[in-house]
Nucleic acid binder design. Structure first.
Lengths: 350, 350
DNA sequence: CTGAAAGCGCTAACAA
DNA sequence: TTGTTAGCGCTTTCAG
């Protein structure tokens, strides 16, 4: 259907408005030094011709592409989806495009870092949820554009992440305050091992235990491979058959927590009567399951990282190593309750 | 950290290799008419200088941007995530970039169609899961690039969608074959009303009933607003209080089905003993819940639409109105069972 | 406030 | 097979 007639150029608009191309350029970019009547004529001509600027032509001369690139392992996760769904509109509002590099496996990853396709083709790169090797980070340093690390620390480089340690500490304290002393921690382990967040959350869990003088027992920490189900059943089996089984499970993330609850209920272990379950994230599934959880906000994260990107792009003097740490908050729902056979204060402060 | 020294250009590479810029261009694009030794020299020079081509400069002369744009309502859904996660790598392999326009609400949508930011800045546009007005579609026709409609039909324009009607028909037949005669259909209704798929699935449901001579009863069709929970409780309340309540529920999609199961179990209605529940999608949640469902594959969809885009971009003579319809298949799991008090053939053919 | 001219980095004829 | 030339459509001096 589309009629591939050529797009009008600035020269066309200029001719129609009876001015020069430079004036059209100035007008359309909203520069101040254009007389009101000329501005009106130009704008009208542009509208009539249905003119759209060619970003490529202007990039060539300004040296800016108007594109922000993001590097993600997948788009198929709550975190990515939420973060990018808020980042996208924010960038658009600033007149920038969002380009996405999906790098699902090791081969693609190697090729990405070898070719660096974003080089010269974006104004900034946002690296989401990767645990980069030093070599990879070094490669990105030569990209010639600001690189912001999301969901991971990166020394001397700008990054944005949620305070996983504090979040897990608060969550664990919530369980401790409910009188639990045997608290299990369930992690997921992927193809590339534990994620950065996973480490941090375990750390927060340990810190809270230490603060409460509850000895850390590593038989209470279990890992399960990603496509849960079987792994979860096994992991819970292990926990329930301990001499002194846990009365609470802190799952590293909500989907895992949901799976834990599901599996427990199947085995007739009531939640929260016999076992409290706490998640991390506050994904939609947490609401369905009435799951107590430590909430984080990926859409806030998208917003914050977008703003930081704009700043680094527009202000060359901006601090190029800023770290932004986002908070979490505890949402007690129906899956955590006082430890069986214990009278406690119901505090859920973290 | 990045040292903003200027990027080397083709001229730099040319100088270093002792050839002209055209030769560099030809070499790097892999054209055949370059002598082997020159090729080697050029490639080495490019490598040494860490040269990367400026897509913008070449776009200017070739008229192609090397970008495929997608228009999506959100990135925060299983369907989008899966589809784009497969589309991205496919495009990269073809040397194309993926640009994403996230248009979450009516205001953004209006602005998108007014400005058409993709115009002149992409080689094709893929419109995902929008029900466009005629006016909007017409606007896209003037974009000057192939526009492919995903998850929706569009007369006379290329489109890719899953066969929702057939899928829902198969699913409904599965329930009929299990002896169910009172089968409810639960839809979700969003801010903009029912989606295209929603309509189609309802249609398939009705067709199957008709084929089986089961009268269609519109009190068995209920809708619930998107953030389920409350809506689902109400909807099920309505169904269960019917004079002749259903023995099976066909939910328009898996998340909704999960919510239905959850709510039923809370009300002590056993699934599948007293109520069968069937979903649509085969999202990960279907596996957790051991949910019988009608499976579709968004990642196949991403792949197919990507291939179609490449074809339309590269071959001007390609049929510009091709429709590709993707299949579904039934996955019987644990949430569908013979209707209570009925002896039936357990066929699950669709 | 406006226009003319130069050139951003590349590719596409055309010659050689 | 290679180099030369002439732009692609814009922005940016620099004059006026």
């Amino acid at each position: 259907m589309p009629d591939a007639q050529r797009h009008p150029t600035m020269a066309d608009v200029a001719e129609r408005a009876g001015v020069s191309a430079s004036t059209v350029s100035r007008t359309l970019r909203g520069l101040s030094n254009v007389s009101p009547d000329v501005r009106v004529r130009v704008e009208q001509a542009a509208r009539e011709l249905n003119f759209a600027i060619s970003r490529h032509a202007s990039s060539l001369v300004t040296g800016r592409t108007g594109i922000v690139a993001v590097l993600v392992p997948t788009l198929n996760s709550w975190f990515m989806g939420s973060a990018l769904s808020s980042l996208g509109p924010l960038l658009r509002a600033a007149g920038l495009e969002l380009a996405v590099y999906v790098v699902p496996d090791l081969a693609e990853r190697a090729s990405f870092f070898e070719q660096l396709p974003a080089r010269r083709n974006a104004d900034a790169l946002l690296v989401f949820s990767f645990d980069l090797t030093d070599e990879e980070s070094a490669r990105l340093d030569d990209l010639g554009m600001p690189v912001i690390y999301v969901s991971q620390h990166a020394d001397e480089r700008p990054s944005v992440y949620v305070d996983d340690v504090a979040g897990a500490r608060h969550g664990t304290r919530h369980l401790l305050n409910l009188g639990h002393r045997r608290i299990a921690f369930v992690q997921t382990v992927g193809a590339t091992g534990f994620s950065f967040s996973s480490h941090e959350r375990l750390l927060g869990y340990q810190q809270a235990l230490t603060e409460a003088d509850v000895p850390f027992d590593d038989s209470l920490v279990v890992a399960t491979p990603f496509p849960y189900k079987r792994g979860v059943t096994e992991a819970l089996g292990k926990l329930l058959s301990l001499r002194e089984p846990p009365t609470a499970v802190f799952a590293e993330q909500d989907e895992l927590a949901a799976s834990v609850i599901w599996t427990l209920r199947k085995s007739r272990v009531e939640v929260p009567e016999r076992m409290s379950v706490l998640g991390f994230d506050d994904q939609p599934v947490a609401e369905w399951f009435d799951l107590s959880t430590v909430a984080q906000s990926p859409s806030d994260m998208g917003r914050v990282v977008g703003e930081l990107a704009l700043e680094l792009i527009n202000d060359p003097d901006a601090d190029p190593r800023r770290h932004v740490v986002l908070p979490t908050h505890l949402i007690p729902r129906a899956t955590t309750a006082p430890a069986p056979g214990r009278v406690t204060d119901l505090a859920n402060r973290g």
